[in-house]
Computed example of a mutant assay.
Amino acid sequence: MSLDTQMNSLGFAKPPAETRVVVAMSGGVDSSVVAAKLAEEGYDVVGVTLQLYDHGAALAKKGACCAGRDIHDARRVAEEMGFPHYVLDYENNFREAVIDEFADSYLGGATPVPCIRCNERVKFKDLLETAKDLDADCMATGHYIQRKMGNAGAELHSAADPTKDQSYFLFSTTQAQLDYLRFPLGHLASKDETRALAAKYGLGVADKPDSQDICFVPNGDYAAVIEKLRPGSAMPGDIVDSDGNVLGTHRGVIHYTIGQRRGLGIGGLADPLYVVKLDVAAKQVVVGPREMLATRRVPVREINWLGDGGFADQKERQIAVRVRSTRPPTDAILRPISDTEAEVELVAAEQGVSPGQACVFYDPQSTRVLGGGWIWRGA
């Protein structure tokens, strides 16, 4: 290799035309722009779309990714930009790796985040292996997150636009996956720039609305999906206070989440009450005042560490964490217990911390994502 060989925009020391990149295309504007941009730059682009569920089934919904209209839109972008496009049937994989666990977690009283499992177990695992089988140098996606090179290799960083940042959903990306992945949109200042690029390339999806986070949940009705997947799971029971006093009845624990206030059906009380615990075994929804939701200690397991060195070798350290995708990072102390477990102590108490949600670690001095894990019991 010549010393004056320049790196292309994807980080390879060869011309774009000699660099094959598989683009994961959901049919939305983000991944379509990534594919079109790389094709225009002269890369050897191969578009791949995963059909993750039957778009004719009751689980489908308007505006979802990876089914029906979206597959058609992805194919059309490939035709317009002149690169090959393949649709792979991953319906069984998706059900086994994502949907079944989603249902079981809800039945266990947790609040799962299936989008993280989809990235971890399907898109960045099965699809990534497919990209390698196609002899691709890398795989690119439309996620809003940044990959930067550090002293020890590729690092994961939050997106430049905090309102579109998807780092919460990508914390479980492994170092090996990160070495192979590329995120061409992470540096953009706003979604408006993405839509402007779509218009520049003449893409029909330029004004297409964003897809919802959970693609297979119609109208955000989680309970309806659970009842379809696990018939008979919505068993009625009591709504009780922290002392066990019965305040009312419920239609099934799966209809409730930690922190919920509305829809409890126990009006007429002096002070508002919130769901503070879901006791699946007793079929009870436990409610209490808002202050009962506050917690500072968060047990975390299944940790994926992207910081320097091994996780178990880390000392107690100050970090920033997000315990929900909708909340900004907050100051915390990380205390490793093993290679995959830790206790996180929040400097300021958070309300509604729920088992099944992710706890994502950030470097408080930069935009770097240090990894994260899963909140695993009532905190």
Rank of each mutant, 00 (worst) to 15 (best):
V48L: 12
V48I: 13
V48G: 04
V48Y: 02
V48S: 04
V48R: 05
T49N: 05
T49W: 01
L50E: 01
L50N: 02
L50S: 08
L50K: 00
Q51G: 03
Q51Y: 02
Q51E: 14
Q51S: 10
Q51A: 09
L52E: 00
L52G: 01
L52Y: 01
Y53N: 01
Y53W: 12
Y53R: 00
Y53E: 02
D54V: 05
D54I: 05
D54G: 06
H55E: 12
H55Y: 12
H55W: 11
G56I: 03
A57E: 11
A57C: 12
A57D: 15
A57R: 10
A57H: 10
A57K: 06
A58T: 11
A58V: 10
A58L: 13
A58F: 10
L59P: 00
L59Y: 06
L59G: 12
L59W: 07
L59R: 09
K61N: 08
K61R: 13
K61S: 07
K61C: 08
K62V: 12
K62E: 13
G63R: 02
A64C: 08
A64D: 03
C65E: 13
C65Q: 13
C65G: 14
C66W: 01
C66P: 00
A67L: 02
A67C: 07
G68P: 07
G68H: 09
G68L: 08
R69W: 10
R69F: 11
R69V: 14
R69T: 14
D70E: 14
D70M: 15
D70N: 15
H72Q: 15
H72C: 13
H72M: 15
D73R: 11
D73M: 10
D73S: 13
D73V: 07
D73L: 13
R75T: 15
R76P: 06
R76M: 14
R76E: 15
R76A: 15
V77I: 14
V77C: 10
A78P: 09
E79W: 08
E79V: 11
E79F: 05
E79K: 13
E79C: 09
E80P: 02
E80V: 14
E80L: 15
M81W: 05
M81L: 10
G82W: 03
G82M: 04
G82F: 03
G82K: 07
F83K: 06
F83T: 03
F83H: 09
F83C: 04
F83N: 05
F83L: 05
P84C: 05
P84Y: 06
P84L: 05
H85Y: 04
H85W: 07
V87M: 04
V87K: 02
V87C: 08
V87A: 07
V87H: 03
V87D: 03
V87N: 04
L88H: 06
D89F: 04
Y90N: 04
Y90Q: 07
Y90E: 02
Y90V: 00
Y90I: 00
E91I: 12
E91G: 09
N92R: 14
N92L: 11
N93H: 12
N93G: 04
N93Q: 12
F94K: 01
F94M: 03
F94R: 01
R95F: 15
R95P: 01
R95L: 10
E96G: 03
E96Q: 12
E96H: 10
E96T: 11
E96K: 11
A97W: 06
A97R: 12
A97F: 09
